[in-house]
Nucleic acid binder design. Sequence first.
DNA 1: CCGTATCCATTCCGATACTG
DNA 2: CAGTATCGGAATGGATACGG
Lengths: 149, 149
Amino acid sequence: MAKRTRHEKAGCPVARPLDVIGDCWSMLIVRDAFDGLRRFGEFQKSLGLAKNVLAARLHSLVDYGVLEIVPASDGSAYHEYVLTEKGRALFPVLVALRQWGERFCFKPNERYAQLVDRKRGKPLRRLEVRAQDGHVLEPADTMVIGRPT
Amino acid sequence: MAKRTRHEKAGCPVARPLDVIGDCWSMLIVRDAFDGLRRFGEFQKSLGLAKNVLAARLHSLVDYGVLEIVPASDGSAYHEYVLTEKGRALFPVLVALRQWGERFCFKPNERYAQLVDRKRGKPLRRLEVRAQDGHVLEPADTMVIGRPT
DNA sequence: CCGTATCCATTCCGATACTG
DNA sequence: CAGTATCGGAATGGATACGG
């Protein structure tokens, strides 16, 4: 009893990912991995969290197939953590979260780290939810069907 | 000591939202709110979590401005929880998470609840990250600048 | 430099009882 | 129905010591 609920068996594709990245640190590790961080120490320095916690999260992400362990690129004895295809596919989630944070979690004058188009140095276009024919959809234009019992 | 780290002061717009929706339940409450659930009992029935936990999460979401409390629409003595503009702006986050879950958290034959275009009943287009000029961007085509120290 | 192991405070969460 | 109050177990997470 009193065990933490897992969503692995939920029939909802929103719920299951929360087991994987639904905590304080996992998304930030993924963010750093997108920024090119690979080494244990790099993550720790960037995030400032305890080493045991970092180790646990890294292993969890490896277990879930978001990260994989590869030999060190510089020939050192250690290994590095890089995003798998599954991990790289989190890019839109990260961008969505970031754009929401920019709009609603900062004061007007406050500075924040900005994700830009590398070629032009310009910020990205706002993400839009679209139907197959390309129409932009508002929440009210959508519905959920086929929810498993 | 040993307090849970909050990201309110982080200069990264990915980090701050995690204080708001970076736990198991908040995103699911938001999902249900998008599905039109409004009453305490509806959320509880849908999510199957303890009432005290639900109450805490609802209040937290109200405090963060994601939900607001409005008088009951049916004239009953209680109130209801509805998304604010800030909450509705989480729609792309929810869709991004959902699309990732569909691809990577279900087996090929497994059924899941599907979000569709209400008019046509068809699934949505995959979210794409684009530059201002409309070009689709891969993670490698982007970079982070202006990270506050 | 890269982790693992241990310890402990805090927080989370589920169950249940209770009030209006 | 809509919550609040309380309890206890579990998980989280921080600090630090230690081994490769």
